[in-house]
Nucleic acid binder design. Structure first.
Lengths: 132, 132
DNA sequence: GTCTTACATATGTCTTTTACACTTAGAGGT
DNA sequence: ACCTCTAAGTGTAAAAGACATATGTAAGAC
């Protein structure tokens, strides 16, 4: 093999050529955000959607469809439990609650996020040393 | 629609049932890591692979294949430039260098990462308020 | 009364990002 | 000749995220 590469360039959504979208988000951050909100008190999915920006940043646009899928995956793993709340007025709501396992998972997320903070802080220190 | 959901549960790779892998990594973090290393001095791909853990965390396992793809995508967008270094001993090496546009992109990454730090810090404060 | 809007929960599908597996090739050692 | 290390790449699948649309309740507008 030698010289010159082939087709199949990775697409990185340059808005305009030479202008990449830079975001710097934590992978799967909605997940710990859900756990944190649910630790404070049980709520239903729609309320979680409205409150997620509080904990995950004001600019995040949570995908509603994926959020419900995540909630169900969490329930299958015993991280949250849910039931239909027939009592509440309005359309049928499924109210979610954090389990003990969920609380422990949140703890692990918090630890992982602290580690991520250390890594990013190290990056930024090294960035600033280099100067402009 | 009412009651009970369907097939198609999202897969979240639970290592053991009830034990999710928690990682908390920044999306596409290798990209700014490459830019930072290349700002310090030009180097070839293989050297970048060895040095990435320095700036992106010791545990990150960079995928070698993807790294070369990213480098080419960066070059197509004028973020880095490269050429074969016939002079150096050993197998053919392509040496990468950061362009002016690349330096500006790194600046934008740094700003985005600072913002991410703020968001995560806010999350952790709220987490600690709740106690255990 | 039916029309529109807001609430609430979902599914389908496509793209982007990441992970895993493999190939090619030069240079040096044994 | 054969093996290992360095160096650069391709192929492909899985995971994560984005975008579009469907379904049903309830309240208020006209």
């Amino acid at each position: 093999m030698r010289r010159g590469y082939a087709r199949g360039a990775r697409c990185r959504s340059p808005v305009r050529p030479g202008h990449w979208e830079v975001r710097a988000r934590v992978e799967r951050f909605v997940e710990p955000a859900l756990l944190l909100l649910l630790r404070e008190r049980p709520m239903h999915g729609y309320e979680l959607i409205e409150r997620i920006p509080e904990v995950a940043g004001e600019d995040v646009r949570v995908d509603v469809g994926n959020l419900y899928r995540i909630l169900r995956a969490l329930e299958e793993e015993g991280i949250v439990s849910s039931e239909w709340s027939a009592d509440l007025p309005g359309p049928a709501k499924r109210t979610y609650e954090l389990t003990e396992a969920g609380s422990r998972l949140l703890d692990r997320w918090a630890e992982a996020l602290r580690e991520a903070q250390r890594v990013v802080a190290g990056f930024l220190r090294r960035y600033e040393q280099g100067g402009r």
